[in-house]
């Protein structure tokens, strides 16, 4: 089992060694509604924790996606260009946005695990 962590802004990061795969949570995709476009960063770009890493667009809104931890972009999900719907259909799978090489795995500690995130969601409604 890989380790998935969440932010309060509903990004997730799935850790695989020193690589983190970033996307938005199932809750986030439901809130956004039909995703129509994802603006992805350039490979090689570096982010600090909390920097804007991508933009996800529905028909009526655009939302920034922030880097849960700092790192350098090593891969982006170019499949989203043709099928942005996978963000809705499979947010934690085919709907991933980008992969980064973690700069400091210590930053992960500040993020929520699955259970904590589920509790966090309960506080929202």
């Amino acid at each position: 089992m890989t380790d998935v962590r969440y932010t309060k802004d509903h990004e997730y990061i799935r850790i695989n060694g020193d690589i983190g795969e970033i996307g938005i949570s199932d809750y986030a995709q439901k809130q956004l509604g039909d995703v129509v476009f994802v603006e992805l960063p350039q490979i090689g770009a570096s982010f600090g924790k909390g920097d804007q890493a991508a933009v996800v667009e529905s028909v009526k809104a655009a939302s920034e996606v922030y880097a849960p931890v700092s790192g350098e972009v090593v891969e982006v999900n170019s499949g989203l260009e043709a099928t942005p719907a996978s963000v809705n259909e499979d947010p934690l799978g085919k709907g991933w946005f980008l992969k980064i090489k973690l700069a400091d795995s210590g930053e992960l500690g500040a993020l929520m695990d699955e259970a904590a995130y589920r509790d966090f969601l309960k506080t929202l409604d």
Binding site: V36, V59, K60, A61, A62
Partner: peptide, 12 residues
């Protein structure tokens, strides 16, 4: 493609 426009994106 209205997310480009002022009524959605405002200052961006």
């Amino acid at each position: 493609l209205s997310t480009r426009e002022q009524h959605i994106r405002r200052e961006k």
